[in-house]
Structure formats: C-alpha cells, structure tokens
Amino acid sequence: MSFINYSAREINCKIVYYGPGLCGKTTNLNIVYKKTRPESKGKMISLATETERTLFFDFLPLSLGDIKGFKTRFHLYTVPGQIFYDASRKLILKGVDGIVFVADSQVERMDANMESLDNMKLNLEEHGYTLDKLPYVIQFNKRDLDDVVPVDEMRTVLNPGGVPQFEASAASGEGVFETLKAVVKLVLAELKKGA
C-alpha cells in the first residue's frame, strides 16, 4: 500500500518482482542497483542462502525524482522462487502496489512459469487483491539464450490479458529499465485514479 507522507513530502510505493526460481528476479534488482546513481538508491538487502538463492526477499529502495514537490520512492522487492518458500512469498505480496512477473524464456521452464503465475494469483487472492486490478507488467527474460520459446507463444500462454510485456536479458541489463519504468508508470497512474 502506498504511503503518502506530507511531512517528509514523499510518495512511497512497493513493487514486487515475482516469478519461478532462477528466472532472474534478483538479477533485475542487481542491475537496477548497479546502474542507478548513488544519490538515488539506498542499500540493497539480500536475505539469501549461502548459495545466493533468495531466502526471504531482496530489497532495493529507489528514488525517482519529484512530482508536485513530492519525492517519489519505490521499494523494490523480489520473492524467493522455490516452491517450498510459498509462505514467505505470500508475506512479501502484502501491501503491494505493482507487480513485475519475470518469466524464464527457456523451453524447459515454461511449466515453472505457469505454475508460478498461478501461485501468484492465488497468493494475491489470499490478500484480497486481484491481478486484473493491480498495476502489472510481464518480462520475458533470458532472450539471449538459444533454446527459448517464441515471444508470441509466451504471450499466448502467460499474457492473455495483454498487459505491457518486455523482452529482456537481465544478466546483460537489456530490458531491465524498460520493465521498471512501465510498472512505475502504471503504479503512479493508479494512484492518480484512486485519489
């Protein structure tokens, strides 16, 4: 849930990167962190296992300039992708203002993508949210690999609703900011609408 603080003159919003294990959620945040000016970002926190698998969440606070004299601040979170971390995933969705679903374009990960998308819808519903009503974009990641599913097919399967979708190779940074910008815009537009 966004937090508008008149005293600090800040608008704070929460964006969650969701998707199956190893699809590149943490990589997205790492790239955003690396390519953002020091004054615009806070500390990145990764609660990860010793093998760098996300255990609870990654967190990156980001400032994106002013609107009407208010600083806009976005808190980016990733969820752990492994199936058995479902309890943690659910917790992180609480109060979400916008969602990026990161899909893994590799042929053998399509089942995992679908499973994760279903799981996300369920977890949102348990919080009383519906995906259709949330600012939501989808990223087809790992386009640089050889054995990837054609974009058309990915759209049919994962994005029948036609939300903004982006091809990315997060590891090299491609598509990362396009995705982030799109969800930020939707979140702000939603705030405006809800006002």
């Binding site: 849930m1 966004s2 937090f3 508008i4 008149y6 005293s7 109060g95 009383g128 949210y129 809800g194």
Partner: peptide, 11 residues
C-alpha cells in the same frame, strides 16, 4: 483498487 494509500499530514 481495494487498498487506499496511507496518507499522513504534517500535523
């Protein structure tokens, strides 16, 4: 959207 923003005024 079901969730409104949390708004805090100066005072």
């Amino acid at each position: 959207m079901s969730q409104a923003s949390l708004v805090m005024f100066e005072e």
